[in-house]
Simulated scan of single mutants.
Amino acid sequence: MVRITNGKVRHRRHKTLIKRTKGFRLGRNNVYKQVRLALLKQGQNAYIGRKLKKRDFRRLWIERLSAALRARGSKYSVFVGQMTKKDVRLNRKVLSNIAVAFPEVFDKIHDEVLK
């Protein structure tokens, strides 16, 4: 009986994983055991990064809004409170983009909210 090994299959599997770690440093790009661990860690960091990205962008939008409102002599917290009270449904992303790109429109929104 012929002895069957999975040499070709194993080699192909290792090769595909090693391709995915191109650019990694030291043994993490060519030692199979370290490659596997590096890819696991990479996936964890990517997941965490996607969550942090949302947090960072929200912080950026709030900073932009706050700066635009300070230039007009009002506070972010008061403005957002009034928006909630008057049921103005514009999110922070849209408001910050309007404040940066179209200051005249933002002035009208500011005046309407803080009447």
Rank of each mutant, 00 (worst) to 15 (best):
M1Q: 06
M1E: 13
M1C: 09
V2P: 05
V2L: 12
I4N: 02
I4Q: 02
N6V: 05
K8Q: 03
V9G: 03
V9K: 03
V9D: 06
R10A: 08
H11P: 01
H11N: 05
R12P: 00
R12L: 03
R13V: 09
H14V: 04
T16A: 11
L17K: 03
L17A: 09
I18E: 05
K19P: 00
G23D: 03
F24E: 04
F24K: 01
F24V: 13
R25P: 00
L26H: 11
L26F: 12
G27C: 06
G27V: 07
G27K: 08
N29C: 13
N29R: 11
N29M: 07
N29V: 00
N30D: 08
N30Q: 05
V31E: 00
V31T: 03
Y32N: 02
Y32L: 04
K33G: 07
Q34W: 07
V35P: 00
V35M: 04
V35C: 01
R36L: 15
R36Y: 11
R36G: 07
A38E: 08
L39Q: 05
L40G: 09
K41N: 08
K41A: 03
K41V: 12
Q42V: 02
Q42G: 10
G43T: 12
Q44T: 03
Q44V: 09
N45G: 05
N45D: 05
N45Q: 15
A46R: 11
A46S: 12
Y47N: 01
Y47R: 01
Y47M: 01
I48Q: 05
G49V: 01
R50F: 08
K51Y: 12
K51N: 07
K51F: 14
L52Y: 04
L52V: 11
K53Y: 01
K53V: 00
K54H: 09
R55Q: 13
R55S: 09
R55Y: 12
R55P: 04
D56P: 00
F57E: 00
R59L: 07
L60T: 06
L60G: 04
L60Q: 11
W61L: 05
W61K: 04
E63Q: 15
E63G: 12
E63A: 15
E63Y: 13
L65M: 10
S66T: 15
S66L: 07
A68V: 10
R70M: 13
R70D: 09
G73A: 12
G73H: 11
G73Q: 05
S74M: 10
K75F: 15
S77P: 01
S77I: 14
S77E: 07
S77C: 06
V78C: 05
F79A: 01
V80E: 06
V80F: 10
G81R: 12
M83T: 09
K86A: 04
V88Q: 02
V88A: 08
V88H: 05
R89T: 11
R89L: 06
R89P: 00
R92G: 07
R92L: 14
R92I: 10
V94M: 11
L95P: 00
L95I: 06
S96R: 04
I98E: 01
A99V: 14
A99K: 11
A99R: 07
V100F: 14
V100W: 09
V100T: 15
A101E: 13
F102S: 14
F102P: 07
P103E: 13
E104P: 03
V105W: 13
V105T: 10
V105I: 12
V105K: 15
F106L: 02
K108T: 14
I109S: 01
I109M: 01
H110D: 02
D111T: 07
E112Y: 15
